[in-house]
Simulated scan of single mutants.
Amino acid sequence: MASATGDTPAGKPRVVIAGAGVIGASTAYHLAANHGMRCTLYDQKGAGCAASGKAGGFLALDWCDGSPVGELARVSFAMHEELAKTLSLDSYRRLTCEAVAVDERAVVAAGGVAKPGNKKLESIEWADIGAVASRPMGTEETIAQVHPKRLTEAFLDAANAKAGTEVVLGKVEGVVTHEVTGEVTGVVVDGETVPADVVVVAMGPWTHRASTWAPGMPKVILGQKYHAVLMRPERVLTQAVFFQGLGDPEFYPRGDGDVYVCAYPDSPNVVDEEPGEVEVRPDAVQRLVDVARAVSSEMKNAEVNGSGQSCHLPITQDGMPVMGAVPGTNGLYVATGHSCWGILNSPASGAAMAELIATGSVTCVKNFDAFSPKRFAR
């Protein structure tokens, strides 16, 4: 294991973040940018090696309205545009989104070929085989996207430039606390103790492992496995599509020409696969390629980029993120459970966690206490 380097500014706590995904990276960035605090992130495989590097990067302003996550999403959506400028993210762009219902029998009969003279439904950019109805799900005012791995890396690069924050390869295995006060004094990484005053567990679907060494940590953090594939048609598309039928596949076109295709999630389970070693099932990837070719003549001959990918999205018992101080251990925090909205909600989540660590309270997101891990201890 490589050792952490760099000096902590006088009067600032020594902060360690377990996990270098987008939530940990955002927290590190906002600690550096907003509070002048450096930290060390430990990760088994490196930055964005799991869902934060393999997600679709789809952003929606108002899809979480009416839920406790609504305010978090709205604040984050606005922050993404500002961060794209600040961090020079060329993968960020606005786009539109449609729900498209397909006649499955017509799709099968067409064999992936649009009938001569067929016209796409009004407002539909590229879905043309078996499409029978559509409805708008968002305009460029409410829908955007960003490349998740590039965002994660940009957070970390900026945190390093501002405060000397760094990512170190290593597996966090426990915390060390003062026997009298119960305050965090260190973190165990690959069997070695690293001094720390604050530890943030942001291990995504692997956060359940921390419950073995932190009594107040939520015990059931599940992972829901998704497969995805990148395909590249002849032109750059600008409309995300959520299909209804054929297993409800989702298509997120990117500004670089790739179209991210995902569908058919596994049932949520406790994750036993290791970070960076999540199995990709060829049959699941081929199913995605087949359905992409079946619903669009533009995707019929699209190039398949790579052999597909898979990742586990972190799921909590009640479907909401869990963020805040862990009961029973002073200086221990958790931030995970964002489900499919981790990339969207990463800016405000990281800003709120950084504010909580630095000041003891959160003002940048209303009702942040709704995400407290204390709710699982009731």
Rank of each mutant, 00 (worst) to 15 (best):
G191C: 08
T212P: 04
V184D: 09
P233K: 08
E183Y: 09
E192W: 03
E183L: 12
V201P: 10
D248I: 02
A196N: 11
S267P: 14
V241Y: 01
V220A: 08
S267E: 15
V199K: 13
K219A: 13
V220M: 13
R235K: 09
S267C: 11
A263F: 07
G247V: 05
V189M: 10
A228C: 12
D266M: 15
F251Y: 14
G204L: 01
V201S: 09
A263P: 03
F251H: 02
E192R: 15
P233G: 04
V259T: 06
V261W: 00
S211C: 03
C262N: 12
A240F: 00
M203P: 11
V187K: 12
A228F: 04
A263W: 07
T207E: 11
P249Y: 05
D266Y: 15
V236L: 00
V188L: 11
Q224V: 03
S267D: 13
G191K: 13
D190P: 01
D256F: 07
T207Y: 04
Q239K: 01
G186M: 09
V201K: 12
N269I: 15
E250W: 01
I221P: 11
D248T: 05
G204V: 02
R235H: 02
L237H: 00
V201L: 14
M231R: 01
T238E: 00
P233A: 09
F243D: 10
V199F: 03
V189Q: 06
V184E: 03
D256W: 06
M203N: 14
W213I: 04
L237M: 07
R235W: 00
A196Q: 09
G247W: 03
P195H: 04
Y252L: 14
Y252E: 03
V198H: 07
A263I: 07
V198Q: 10
T212L: 12
K219L: 13
V199S: 10
G216C: 09
K225W: 05
Q244D: 14
